[in-house]
Nucleic acid binder design. Structure first.
Lengths: 110, 110
DNA sequence: CTGAATCCCGTGCGATACTG
DNA sequence: CAGTATCGCACGGGATTCAG
């Protein structure tokens, strides 16, 4: 009476490879909330994330086609990020994580 | 036209606090597959995880009531782990991650 | 066999500086 | 403003030992 079949392990590991990383979920959540955010806005919202961390993780997510980077040919430079079509397909899972937390974890006091 | 409401952020962060950690998902997956596993079996299945990592993460998951530790009063000691009721409620999300991977990631070659 | 504690090394990440 | 590159340290986590 197992709950998950072993044959699903490979796809599972591939999913983990994409979303593992301390900030991946946070970034995806931000973009899910705001639809599209500039680099600086992301950094502010995710403080105290560092410059390096944010750009590294954004690069990873873009490489995995979870988010799209939109570069405006302006000066000063302006870049913003939003969920890709593939990233959008991940939304139900994000919502599920929210709902699970609401159902099964206690709010912090005060 | 945002996709997720900000009010869900707190529960979302609480969920992340529980399942963030390099091996948490892997451990939950193992227990979802096998229902119940001894310490040594987990270690073998998750190789090359180290002794310290595994016991630390198991302790975390047990502290968060995601898994239950069953100690047999025997010698030599025998301990096994399985999903708690709370851990079982997380199964749909695990399945969703599997399915998402199957749908949106490419199998590795060979 | 499982688990706690110690020690110590490698590297992930923070800080900083530089480019466009 | 956004992004890359470099350097150096802290700390995560690997190896090992001891206990029950």
């Amino acid at each position: 009476m197992q709950h998950i079949c072993r044959t699903k392990e490979a796809p599972f590991l591939r999913t983990l490879a994409i979303i593992n990383g301390k900030w991946k979920f946070r970034i995806l959540y931000e973009l899910a909330c705001e639809t599209t955010l500039r680099y600086g806005e992301l950094k502010r919202n995710l403080a105290p994330i560092t410059h390096k961390m944010l750009s590294d993780q954004l690069k990873d997510l873009a490489a995995d086609d979870m988010i799209v980077r939109h570069i405006y040919p302006e000066v000063p430079p302006r870049v913003d990020y939003s969920l890709s079509p593939k990233g959008l397909t991940f939304l139900p899972i994000m919502v599920a994580l929210c709902d699970w937390g609401k159902e099964h974890t206690a709010p912090s006091k005060t």
